[in-house]
């Protein structure tokens, strides 16, 4: 039985590999801001289901667009949506869960505190009870489609789960004695949240974030499958994969490329999470 791992390595192999796997698409996306071999939406007559050649290293898709260029641009778009969604969702979830848990954990809960806790739990639970398709459909129909609104839809879908997970962590944190001590010293709730709860919850949050980012990527793929994602011809990994599967006989690479990228990115994100876990625990 391992009782500890000794001193934590500076860069666990998990973390390194994860950064490579997840970082490559990120790098691709950043590069795509400056350069892609072809315009991602450019339809090249000779490139319809084109085989893998030097000009088209990943072949062409069913409309004659360069798969590599679309993959790079898609990386930028998908990663942007995932990062924005997770950032917004994390902040929102943290705010909601600290408020809820703090309110509940006061030794003499005032009426406002109880009400706050109740309201937040109510909102979170309500959101969890609404089918995500309906939520996404409503958001997209009312606000319109596109990158920004899809990100909003994804964020809304991530918040309830994140809040619940954070609540579970924070309940344990807030039950600790040092929080009680801080309260008796009169430290304000916000300061408790930011200066005491956050640092202690951070390891768990940081470990959870890559996981939820991969959820965001999968949600985006699911949304474009149902026709609710980004509008064509803008590439995103989800749209590329869904549109390429019917043509898998003509050019399988058009489907394999986005599929592999999604899989390796998510693998990478999970490895990062593992590695961070190792690293952060080692410091304790």
């Amino acid at each position: 039985m391992n009782h500890n791992q000794g001193t934590a390595p500076f860069m666990p192999l998990n973390l390194a590999l994860g950064i490579i796997f997840a970082g490559t698409p990120l790098a691709m996306g950043l590069v795509s801001l400056l350069y892609t071999p072809f315009e991602p939406n450019l339809i090249i007559p000779d490139a319809v289901s084109a085989p893998i050649t030097a000009t088209h290293p990943l072949g062409g898709d069913y409309l004659g667009r360069d798969t590599l260029s679309r993959l790079m641009t898609g990386a930028r778009i998908t990663m942007t949506m995932a990062i924005m969604a997770i950032a917004t969702a994390t902040i929102t979830a943290f705010a909601l869960s600290t408020t809820a848990v703090a309110a509940r954990n006061t030794t003499t809960p005032s009426h406002t505190a109880q009400l706050t806790h109740k309201t937040i739990t109510f909102i979170t639970n309500t959101l969890m009870g609404i089918p995500s398709l309906l939520l996404a459909l409503a958001v997209v129909s009312i606000l319109g489609g596109g990158i920004a609104n899809t990100t909003i839809a994804i964020t809304i879908m991530l918040v309830p789960g994140l809040t619940r997970i954070m609540q579970a962590t924070l309940i344990q944190v807030y039950a600790e004695d040092y929080i009680k001590v801080a309260k008796t010293w009169g430290v304000s709730n916000i300061n408790i949240a930011l200066k005491h709860a956050l640092p202690n919850a951070t390891p768990n949050i940081i470990v959870a974030i890559p996981i939820y980012m991969s959820t965001a990527i999968l949600v985006e793929a699911g949304l474009s499958y149902l026709g609710l994602g980004v509008a064509p011809p803008t590439p995103s990994w989800g749209i590329m994969l869904n549109q390429a599967i019917p043509y898998i006989n003509q050019q399988p690479m058009a489907a394999i490329a986005p599929a592999t990228t999604i899989i390796t990115t998510i693998l990478g994100l999970n490895l990062i999470s593992d590695g961070l876990n190792q690293k952060l625990r080692g410091k304790k």
């Binding site: 999968l218 793929a221 699911g222 599929a259 899989i263 998510i266 999970n270 593992d274």
Partner: peptide, 15 residues
Amino acid sequence: LTTAVTLGVAVPQFL
């Protein structure tokens, strides 16, 4: 083992 298990979530569900 961890990689194999992670594939469960890395491969999109419809695949």
